[in-house]
Design a protein around this nucleic acid. Sequence first.
DNA 1: AAAGATTGATTGGTCAATCTTG
DNA 2: CAAGATTGACCAATCAATCTTT
Lengths: 153, 153
Amino acid sequence: MDETRWLEADEAAAWMNILALVEYLPGMVDQQLKHDSELGRFEYSILAMLSDASERTLPMLDLSTVTFGSLSRLSHTVTRLVERGLVSRERNGGNRTVTLAEPGWDLLKSAAPGHVQQVRKLFFDHLPAGKERELANILEPVVNHLKACAPRS
Amino acid sequence: MDETRWLEADEAAAWMNILALVEYLPGMVDQQLKHDSELGRFEYSILAMLSDASERTLPMLDLSTVTFGSLSRLSHTVTRLVERGLVSRERNGGNRTVTLAEPGWDLLKSAAPGHVQQVRKLFFDHLPAGKERELANILEPVVNHLKACAPRS
DNA sequence: AAAGATTGATTGGTCAATCTTG
DNA sequence: CAAGATTGACCAATCAATCTTT
């Protein structure tokens, strides 16, 4: 529908695949998690990142960075997780920190295998063999740019 | 945090990048479109796919397929687009079809350059040179699988 | 009754405004 | 006042139930 400033064929093919991923994957990941563990992918990500952190604790801003979410999305979600007793939130001087609670750790442990299985079934089982590294390398600089210019609000 | 059934290093790296894409890209694409053209990316996609269709018309089910959206998401969104006069919706026997209206076509034309520019700035300007085809090829089978097992409701 | 499509309730995310501590 | 974080209003997507036409 356009003349010059459009995408060329290879770009268009790549972009269509990215669009499909971006529309399909989140919902399909959420669906399994919600069904099996009453957890959304963002909630899962929060619990998982906390479990890897020293003391199982992270400041809100750091947590928002490693989960790829906005601070306000994180704040709303943490409120719900606190209500469910899965994490706790403390003030630590000027910053607030979130800590993984026992029930959150237990839930994460029980949710992880099914989640990983779903990621395999949806994604890696269909990726051309041996292309994992190549894919990571191709996307790396793009992702670094997105991280750098994503609005942290 | 796990022992066996976890992702290996290359898979984990690839998956982190996919996750970052999936969380960051939609919002950043939406932001530019909304700001410049009062259009979400899904609405844009609907107008764009209609503009490519013969007679600028598609049945709901076909439109949901090419835009990677569920039928109910599409139905809600088309309702809003009809209210704005950007598309029209007719019954055609048992099926309903959506047709791009003049104002929708005009809006699409005015929105396209800025959108394409944003896609370049966010994505292709940072993709390693000459890797567009490779990326498309790697993702193709994954996307085909997702399309095949996506719930069409 | 089955395929195609819509609807309404609920939920979760965004945005802009606000609060809090150093 | 700036950085970190929260809040509430609004909007869009999902899910399950329903409707319509063949």
